[in-house]
Amino acid sequence: MDFGPYLMLATLEGAVLAAVLALMASGLSLVFGVMRVVNVAHGEFYMLGAVLAWWVTSMVGGGPAVAFVAALIVVPVIVGALAAAADMTVLKRLEYDPERTIVATIGLLYILQQVTLMTYGADARPVVPPFNTRLALPWLEWSDGGLHMFWPWGLSTTTYKLFVIVAGIVILSAVWAMMRHSRIGLLMRATQLDSEMAQAFGIPVERVYALVFGIGAGLAALAGVLIVPIQQAHYLMGGDALLLSFIVVIIGGLGSLAGTIVAALLIGLSDGIISVFFSPTLAKIIATLLVAFVLVFRPQGLFGTRDR
């Protein structure tokens, strides 16, 4: 494939990854920002989102579109409730101590993986996308003294992939609006700034924490539901997603939602674009080292203001 069309294809693929990553990472960032908790089980909430989406779509009749919408609504709520329950039964009792919460969430990770393996099984299972038309994309070429449009071999995307990009933008805008303009958002921001002060002002910090943990997990689950028609639900899918969203959160600057989103775009697009220039594994190595060096030379992340 020519260079131009290839770059466009890689950018489109990168944008899909970026959208999903931004959703998932903003959940992780929210939890870290407000609660100062590194949630290692975050990838498993993403996995649960995908697995439950398969479950819901295979239970609900009325065609793939109806089933998918049902999953989009029901699944994040279930996962969010589960996470909130885990917060109240386990994390609260650890007093959110950083090291202990890491061990506890690793434990949670094992539990969620194993329970999924025992109930859902080891197979990768597909969900039918609500719509999925292949769109061949045109490219412009300068030939015979004029600009001509043509359809290069393989340059295409699907309507569903475009939908994922749009859905990512819409959901993130909603989250941003909630943080900025709603009462819940205000409580969260107050707790993030100073939880003791917030407590003194009568904010139910414990309930805010449970809510934040639930919303964070819900966002990961939402990302899982959106990705499952493209990639299949599998009980080990959380691991790599967790690594990527960790990277995004740190690069973006801890607890900064805007930074997280920009970083997701950066990571998603660079993953696609670097693969244009290098052999695949070498591209992964370069992308990984790039992240490491960004942090080495800018430890607060690209958009963080200070090391907290």
């Binding site: 494939m1 890689a10 693929e13 990639q231 790599d240 244009v276 052999s279 695949p280 992964k284």
Partner: peptide, 15 residues
């Protein structure tokens, strides 16, 4: 076209 083992999306390699 060797694919790294951690990869989850493949379209970007097909060109």
């Amino acid at each position: 076209i060797p694919i790294p083992p951690t990869e989850t999306s493949f379209t970007k390699y097909f060109p």
